[in-house]
Design a protein around this nucleic acid. Structure first.
Lengths: 193, 193, 193, 193
DNA sequence: ATCTAAGCGAGACGGTACGTCACGTCTTGGG
DNA sequence: CCCAAGACGTGACGTACCGTCTCGCTTAGAT
């Protein structure tokens, strides 16, 4: 049992810091998240923050990750394409919120390839992608979709456009868009003479 | 002609600032671009920078925009889908460079809805989209693709995945990916019995 | 003309800083003199302080030096020993004040041999010593005191005891002490049989 | 005897702390003596230090006091003035060492009138003064020096100059100086016609 | 032979001040 | 009126120590 000596880290402080950081993040955006403000709001000393997180970016990711991913996975039905449709709309719903936009910006802005940065991307950004992959693989098993499909590419075709509109802001992000994405992929675009 | 009195702004200073900003941007990334560093490298006073650009973000966008968009539009051939294919690969080629990544991050990170921010998005990010739209419309005219296609959605399906991979980094960004995007859209994914 | 370019240092800021530092020094002592407190009280940014003084010690010395040495030199009379007597009492009077104690402590505490540190010692601590030397030399010229006197040693015998009592606090520091110093030196201590 | 329950304080820890503090004091000076550094060097927890000493100043004094006063008292001879001469030179020798300078600075810098502070002054700074007083009183008894001498003032005239030169640094501190002090006091300075 | 109170090392805690950096503005003298 | 230079007040940075507070572990006198 390699139990560490010394006073253990305070769980109360950790929670207070993450909560304060999360609230500041939602209220003011990533750019305004300062360690000083977090420390003040959490009633905590700055070194206590730095002891756990190396900089504001890491703290921000941790604060966003600490929140439960929330939305439960959707139940699988007999129609995988319907499942996919519903899941896409759910993803759009989540990311079109204020928090969703913040998350997307943060991911795009984070330059570092730190461990935490990767974890953030995997846990937050790519989670929905994995759900989609599961649905697609099931659809392939049921022969609802073609077996020779490059699943990874299709996943990019599904979720890419969502982040595209989210970050660039050139088009609305709503259910209709979600339905159009899936419909277009189903049908392809070549003219059927 | 209400010619302004006083000394006119120095074109030399403007060029030096943009060049210095561009180099710092490429070398160190958006986060490290400070007005002070630009001023020092350009041999220019800080107020000279602020006289033209309101903050570091604007300057960064201006520095990126000042560079010629480079790649000439591709010539149109008889096969719009081939044109689209080639254009997509060109876009991938441009944005997979270091500069391309910086541009994408900058766009994603910029929170403001300022005039310059919009101009940046229109001129840099959406420029390739417009090229794609022209190709698609021509394809519709030639009945190479279906007339009832929602062109905007298809454009998102084409370019969204590119930015998705660029920003999240979960997959490679190469010609093969470009070809797969176009192929998938052409064919759709439903099993053909 | 090697005139420096750029905005000149603000004399107003300099004065405000020195005044604030002086007041804090008198109120709270050397140990409590923080750059932050000085900046706050002077209505000045910390960098403005650091631009001129490297640390709190230098600022403290500068603050004490900035004040006019105050006490005018005493007029010389026909009796140099009387002059000496009066000057010694004046020195005691000055250094037995709160400010005097602070000055003495500061001098004793300053470890560095910086330029400013030396200037401080010369201007503040040794100033009275020079006055005494002038008196003694005049006394030698008038043959009021012995010509073979080691003047420097005698000066130490005069002013040393004052700082000794000031810093150690084992005895009172008053006019009587000043008179006793001079009397003892005049007379020597060996028993005259 | 209400002997205290619980584990007794560790003598080993006490020694380690005092030794570490002393070494840091000699190496880096009073200003650099931090509790953290002492704890680290002594291999001791900070609370163990605070349990015995209230702050860094007290610890510093304790560390200096813990060392044996070293120099043995000089044997008394038939000539008290010779004894005085030798004792003065010994004092100069002790305080002109690095440790001596640190001690003097510490005394001058300590603002507090705490019990320990007084003890420090009595035990370290005034100890030599008491030796001198004993010699002077013996000299008075032997009528080697005048009976009407104000002994306390003469003691200040003897030891004051030493600390004066030690702290201000305007003159050398050597045997010659010690001899000059005693000689000057013996002879007085008035011209003998 | 246990119980129990205090000391032990380690180290996290809420703080304060540090000295630095960059911000965006202002103020010089000189084109 | 613009230019370079650079000082200004501001505010956040990340670090060093402060003096206090748990931790789990001795250590020894009292039970």
């Amino acid at each position: 049992m390699p139990k560490k000596p010394g006073r253990p880290r305070s769980e109360r402080a950790r929670q207070a810091i993450l909560k304060a950081a999360y609230n500041l993040l939602i209220e003011d955006g990533v750019g305004r998240l300062t360690i000083e403000a977090v420390a003040a709001r959490a009633g905590v000393g700055k070194p206590t923050i730095y002891r756990t997180w190396a900089n504001a970016g890491e703290l921000a990711m941790a604060a966003l990750m600490a929140r439960p991913a929330a939305e439960p996975s959707l139940a699988a039905t007999a129609s995988p394409l319907d499942d996919l449709q519903r899941q896409v709309c759910q993803v759009i719903d989540i990311f079109s919120s204020l928090r969703g936009r913040q998350i997307a910006r943060m991911m795009a802005a984070s330059e570092s390839d730190s461990e935490l940065s990767k974890a953030f991307r995997n846990r937050i950004i790519l989670k929905c992608r994995e759900e989609g992959r599961a649905i697609l693989l099931r659809a392939q098993a049921l022969e609802t979709v073609r077996r020779d499909l490059d699943v990874e590419v299709v996943l990019d075709l599904i979720y890419g456009p969502i982040f595209y509109r989210l970050l660039v802001g050139h088009g609305t992000l709503d259910d209709r868009f979600g339905r159009e994405i899936v419909r277009s992929l189903k049908e392809g675009m070549v003219a059927t003479t």
